[in-house]
């Protein structure tokens, strides 16, 4: 039983069609993104499922999860905030922004807020140096950029997530 294959048959077909049929291994990163789409991290089981789909060794899949920073092998917050603190952003105040945001959320960089809603971490250059402080959010709807930020408008955004999250829970009851 291949969970990934039964959950996303169409998506997997589209991904595989991008590469020459004898070069299926090229699809491994798109499939890893697919595997972490719902929960925000890759379960061990998905590694073997991907290796079956692509006819490669499980370890050849696992090695990528460790190498690339956008793949996560453990549970994080529902929203994963990654703040760029590289040179150019730091020249425009991103380090103070990160400190301020973490203090307001009562966490340290790398940690998840108590309600499990947000994880905040430092990250390397995101190619938005002219609009710092900035961060990306990895969440249910993919990855989005937020630029020219300050602590107040970021906290407002997090509050909105919390409210819509509560509303969703209400609905499913």
């Amino acid at each position: 039983m291949n969970d990934l294959l039964s959950k996303y048959p169409e998506e997997i077909k589209t991904i595989l069609a991008k590469y020459p049929s004898e070069q299926k291994r090229s699809a491994v990163m798109p499939l890893l993104f697919l595997a972490q789409r719902k929960e925000g991290y890759i379960r061990e089981q998905a590694l073997s499922e991907i290796s079956q789909i692509l006819d490669i060794q499980e370890t050849e899949v696992a090695t990528l999860v460790g190498f690339y920073t956008l793949f996560h092998d453990g549970k994080t917050g529902i929203y994963h905030i990654q703040v760029c603190t590289d040179l150019c952003c730091a020249l425009r105040g991103s380090e103070d922004f990160l400190t301020g945001l973490c203090e307001a959320l009562e966490i340290k960089p790398g940690e998840t807020s108590q309600d499990g809603m947000v994880t905040v971490e430092e990250v390397k250059c995101l190619a938005a140096c002219d609009k710092a402080p900035m961060f990306q959010v990895q969440g249910k709807d993919g990855i989005s950029y937020h630029e020219n930020c300050n602590v107040d408008n970021t906290l407002e955004m997090i509050q909105e997530w919390r409210e819509s999250g509560a509303a969703e829970q209400e609905e499913t009851k």
Partner: peptide
């Protein structure tokens, strides 16, 4: 032409 996404590695 196809797009292909990396996953965070300079």
């Amino acid at each position: 032409i196809h797009t292909h996404l990396g996953a965070g590695a300079y």
